[in-house]
Design a protein around this nucleic acid. Structure first.
Lengths: 297, 297
DNA sequence: TACCTGATATACAAAAATAGATGAACAGGA
DNA sequence: TCCTGTTCATCTATTTTTGTATATCAGGTA
């Protein structure tokens, strides 16, 4: 049992080995050499008193203990990255790196023009875009600013409600020409539809408003909204997507405009600590402004 | 501008210098020497490209940039500590270190017997007790388990509702002998009372139930519930404290038992990740059981 | 089977970080 | 005013860490 706390660098090495699967690969990743990485792991194991990896000629197999420690190490890495981001933004003015988390559709279909304008206005700003639906990344400091579809409950976060992005049922004209357009909502049961793979809060929200959904058996299931949108564009069938995005393609037709209209509540969220940092403030404001314009306010 | 990420150890050194206020003190704290600490800071400054401290013969004065980075460094330290705690708990069975966060009164007056029993049942368990009312410490990983008086909103936390700890108005018999006992609630205005220093959610809750509180001018203001309890015990005046704690001292009398009764909702909270680790599981269960018994269920 | 490519482990030399000692500057107290 | 205790900066010797080169092992392929 060692009395002194292990070097924090060992944690970084440990995480990299976990991620890469071998000492050699971790060494390449970190710009060090394999013996060094091996010594780091040895030292860490000696320090905490149990084995983290089983060595094999094919690489290192993490023990149960190592797997348990992994989330902590990842958290540590996220924090170190956040610190470094905060550091790059020092010195006044809008500069440094800002990391934005958004869902895939938003990040790919909606944000790019806003980010372009933001970047042109602030040439020293570096933008990182992380596409995921994980709600927790702000608290984990994996991002500075997030565009979310659920309102965060946390006090430490400052939240700006944008409003509802209108969703609607859509299909490509090619599909409708081939299979005909449904007259009544009930007709949807006889159509090829695009739905979600797993149950989510969003799915439950839809079902609450349109109970018919319950009965539908989607021909394509995908959790990625982007994949759903792509399927609609490809004429696969009938699915839900943002009205605004569908409108961009004149060949895509909206169905049941009156019967099916679901606003997707949208929020821009930032950790309170970052409120005063220029790069985050500017990005936050740009996103709020851009998204408000996007939903037509 | 340096291309490589700074050593994570530099962050630790940086934080320690911030906390201690000088290179020398930080060196003592970390078991290193002053020149080493100085080099770490130099290297970190070179790496991020701006100055962190202004050197002076009295110590190091942090720049604005350093102050901005401090919360990140603290977060990093909390995570490193959490990782180390998780490491000490490896190996099966209830062992290692568990860190509990609770309010002062709970931690000092209520928990000790429970922790004693827990410790005797699990000799290899090391218990750390952090007394504060900060709600965020679980998400920041500054603690493994918390006893809280507000229900956390976060999904990642598992919460066990205990119930209401009964609060009541109390005074020491010595005080009442000297100043007389109030007959009606309104009489409280003429008494020496013990109240809160700053506005808090808890204060607002009391006021909502007993609007009279608004008019009262406490003779002693303290945010520490423990200080309030001590003042009641010392016969300073009339104040609010847990009925159960007051009952321990036969000289303390409860006032307006019917007119003033406020249950203090209590929750035991743990991060979901720790659900399966034996040391946290055992501690969580022990706290739940102990607190349920405490409020008399 | 022989060979190639990936892996880890080890030995030893080079590089880097550290400790130790010393000096200068400043603040507070006798 | 001088003394004492503190600070940081600098120089040098030493220790520690790292890199290089090499050995060894496992698995896939001709």
């Amino acid at each position: 049992m060692n009395r002194t706390e292990p070097s924090w660098d060992f944690y970084r090495t440990f995480l990299t080995v976990l991620q890469e699967g071998s000492l050699s690969a971790a060494a390449r990743e970190l710009g060090l050499t394999q013996p060094t990485i091996g010594r780091h792991i040895d030292a860490l194991e000696a320090s905490i008193g149990f084995q983290l990896f089983i060595r094999s000629p094919q690489g290192l197999i993490p023990t149960e203990a190592a797997v348990d420690l992994r989330p902590h190490a990842e958290q540590l890495a996220a924090n170190a990255a956040a610190l470094l981001r905060a550091a790059t933004g020092q010195g006044g003015g809008v500069r440094g790196t800002v990391r934005i988390s958004a869902s895939e559709v938003i990040g790919i279909e909606v944000l790019p023009p806003m980010l372009t304008a933001l970047s042109e206005r602030h040439p020293d700003l570096v933008i990182e875009l992380s596409l995921s639906d994980a709600v927790e990344d702000l608290l984990r400091q994996e991002a500075d600013i997030a565009v979310r579809m659920v309102e965060p409950q946390q006090d430490a976060l400052i939240t700006r409600r944008i409003g509802g992005i209108p969703l609607g049922l859509h299909a490509h004209r090619r599909y409708l020409d081939k299979h005909g357009a449904p007259d009544k909502l009930e007709d949807l049961l006889d159509h090829r539809t695009i739905g979600f793979d797993r149950e989510s809060a969003f799915v439950r929200a839809i079902r609450k408003r349109v109970p018919l959904i319950e009965l539908m058996r989607p021909s394509l299931r995908a959790d990625s909204n982007l994949a759903q949108l792509a399927a609609i564009r490809a004429g696969f069938g009938i699915g839900v997507c943002q009205v605004e995005l569908a409108r961009r393609d004149p060949e895509i037709v909206r169905l049941f405009e009156k019967e099916f209209a679901l606003p997707l509540e949208t929020f821009v969220v930032m950790h309170e600590n970052l409120k005063t940092t220029p790069r985050c403030r500017a990005t936050f404001d740009a996103l709020v402004e851009g998204l408000l314009a996007y939903i037509g306010r």
